[in-house]
Amino acid sequence: MITVERTFLIEVPLDATMAYLQDFGHAEEWDPGTVRCLRIDEGPVRAGSSWRNTSRFRGRTTDLVYRLDSRGPRELVFVGVNKTVTARDRMRFEAQSATTTRLTYVASLRFNGLARLAEPFLRREFEALADKVAGRLPSAVRAHHSEA
């Protein structure tokens, strides 16, 4: 399994930060690997809501179905699956002040079958991707909050 973790401050209140990030469709704005992310169910976003995510990695595209696995008062957990990989994205939130949120983002990838053999060779690339997410996510949240 590959696990990457990044922690950063977002100059947006906690509730607004969580509201934005619980809609995984916004991944197009903050995840440089996401090409498209469309909701595949209806109604308010809640535990069990799901999205079809198309990502590009190493020049190839792949689709995963992501589900909001759980939504706690200070945590969101998404699980994405396809035949090759299970992805788990855990976001933990902490109010640093009335206007700033500390976000700890942990992404884990568990490959299935023969794809597991590639894990040691992919770790460095996933670390680089996590750095890009850390660079884009705070500004995407801020931009969305300033539009609201």
Rank of each mutant, 00 (worst) to 15 (best):
T101Q: 04
F24C: 02
T101H: 02
M18P: 07
E94W: 05
G43D: 05
A98Y: 04
L109H: 08
L21K: 15
A19S: 14
V35F: 00
F111C: 03
D31W: 12
R110I: 02
S108Q: 13
R110Q: 13
W51K: 03
E42N: 12
A47M: 06
L103K: 05
V35M: 03
N82P: 00
R90D: 03
V12E: 12
R56Y: 00
V35P: 07
D63G: 02
T86C: 00
E42G: 10
D31Y: 13
V79M: 10
D89T: 01
V81Q: 01
Q22G: 08
V45E: 11
L114E: 11
R92S: 12
E94D: 06
D41H: 06
V79K: 10
A128T: 09
T62E: 02
F93A: 06
S70F: 02
L109F: 11
D41T: 06
F8R: 08
R74H: 08
R67K: 08
T101R: 01
L117W: 14
E42H: 14
G59A: 04
D69H: 13
Y105G: 05
A27T: 10
A134W: 11
E11S: 15
E42I: 06
S139V: 11
T86Q: 02
E29H: 14
F57Y: 09
Y20S: 13
R39W: 12
P32L: 07
S146K: 15
V77P: 00
N82V: 06
T61G: 03
D69A: 08
S97R: 06
A128H: 08
L68I: 03
E5T: 15
S97P: 04
W30R: 08
L64Q: 02
